[in-house]
């Protein structure tokens, strides 16, 4: 059997499995109730990507234990109040250290509290749907506004500079053809600024950059800003066609952004909000959001080390 035949036979065997798994996933999304699905995914979010603070961790583990022993407790508003309160204490205590997506997590926990606080399923649905749409618009439009109003963003400076100096981007840079020796040299050069035993002429240093990093910086800059602006604007219209397009772009954003950018908790919460909005009107899209949760977890694999080792 030739290599092509072998691959074809593997594909022919895998295709029905993938199709039936996809069908099962779609059925699962359709038959699971919205509030229940969102609550369970949100509990996973706080367990995996929550606040690194003892108070929140204790609250999270207790809630997880309660849920495992008695799954119905996830419907209790006190369950979410405990998580929301502990997250609030952590944020208030450390407000200028908390990343933006931690604020988003805090807001989402309060939304879940209010959702479960209301008795009628229809009211619960309304809380989730309204807030998922609001926060997706808010996140993307606020981010786009801050980016477009920032000269260091518009010029492409930020992404190019980070491709050089942020070691988390070195592996991604290598994938797009920026040799790790380039950021390495740039980091060594820029480190000179920090020494008290060096005096620089005009406080300036040449950075040994490359044209490829410049182009990559500009592409990332406008890809990121236009995608975010478009998602935020499309969701404002609240029409089926614009929503569908927004979901496709949001999925594109989630799948493409959280591979190089190591802020998986943010990706997970965006996927929960997208799923909330898509579940009833676009079950197939909702199923893709379910796949994105798995992808975000797989992005945690040490792929950067593997790329840099080759």
């Amino acid at each position: 059997m030739s290599e092509i035949d072998r691959q074809l036979s593997w594909f022919q065997r895998a295709k029905p499995i993938a199709l039936s798994s996809g069908q099962e996933l779609l059925e699962f999304v359709k038959r699971t109730e919205l509030v229940e699905l969102v609550s369970v995914l949100s509990l996973f979010l706080v367990v995996i990507f929550g606040f690194l603070h003892w108070l929140f961790e204790v609250a999270t583990y207790l809630c997880l234990l309660l849920f495992l022993l008695r799954p119905k407790t996830i419907r209790n508003p006190l369950f979410w109040l405990a998580l929301a309160l502990s997250a609030t204490v952590v944020i208030v205590h450390d407000w200028h250290e908390a990343d933006n997506h931690k604020y988003l997590l805090l807001y989402w926990l309060w939304i879940l509290f209010f959702c479960h606080f209301l008795a009628k399923p229809e009211q619960q649905r309304r809380v989730l749907l309204f807030n998922a749409r609001f926060f997706l618009c808010f996140i993307f439009l606020a981010a786009a506004a801050q980016k477009l109003s920032s000269p260091t963003y518009r010029s492409g400076e930020m992404f190019e500079y980070y491709l050089y100096v942020d070691s988390r981007f070195t592996a991604f840079g290598k994938l797009i053809g920026i040799d790790p020796s380039v950021p390495d040299a740039a980091q060594k050069r820029i480190a000179l600024f920090r020494s008290s035993f060096l005096k620089l002429a005009d406080n300036e240093l040449e950075v040994p950059g490359t044209d490829r990093a410049r182009v990559a910086g500009l592409v990332l800059t406008w890809w990121d800003a236009s995608l975010q602006l478009l998602i935020g604007l499309l969701l404002l219209f609240r029409r089926r066609a614009t929503d569908q397009f927004a979901h496709i772009l949001l999925l594109l954003f989630i799948f493409s952004t959280y591979l190089p950018a190591p802020i998986s908790g943010f990706g997970w919460i965006l996927a929960i909000m997208g799923l909330t909005l898509a579940k009833e009107n676009f079950p197939r899209i909702a199923a893709v959001y379910m796949v994105s949760f798995v992808a975000i977890i797989l992005y945690q694999l040490p792929w950067r080390d593997w790329v840099l080792a080759t």
């Binding site: 933006n100 981010a143 942020d166």
Partner: peptide, 22 residues
Amino acid sequence: TWKGGGMGMFAGADFSLNRYAK
């Protein structure tokens, strides 16, 4: 812009890599 709840992450070269103290 990266901190404080304004959703301005990756909104400018204005983070720990652009700031230092002597």
